[in-house]
Amino acid sequence: MKVLLIGHPNVGKSVFFNRLTGANVTESNYPGTTVDFTKGYMNIGGEDAELIDVPGTFSLDPKDKAEEVAVAMLHENKDVRVICVIDASKIERGVYLALEILEEGYPMVIALNMWDAAVDKNIRIDINNLQRILGVPVVPTVAISGEGIKELISRLKEAKPVEIDDIIKNAGGLT
């Protein structure tokens, strides 16, 4: 299995990557820390899986060279499952990127990362409803402490491509 971590800059992708593969890619608190991709290996239920960490990107329409790397890795690996990492406090624009990737037919799980910070800010997210509408697993996580990572990985097998029409229907239609 091949798994790709994708998401906005500075949402914690590299923290996930290091935790899952035991690798040592640089983690910092500023957007643009990762400017190249890194591959690593992890074990999911006895099976070896390749995990790829890429630079953060706001959309699939790259604005700089680092974002180009991210989008190229997605497009070069048609057979990947995507872990879309979203800042739980900024869910709308995270979902924008997730939708773009889902539109291209990639199977996905969503990590709502920095869940603790969202709770501190009194932002409440109805996880079950979000899962129902999007049709993909959504897992709240705190990557630096490891919270939710096990569940995230165990639900990777539930990742499957979804029809955008279904999402629109579940959300109650477009205006």
């Binding site: 939708l99 109805d126 239609g173 205006t175």
Partner: peptide, 14 residues
Amino acid sequence: DLIDKIAKQTVTFG
């Protein structure tokens, strides 16, 4: 537009 709909049903800001 779709994100708006989704957010309205799932996110509440305290």
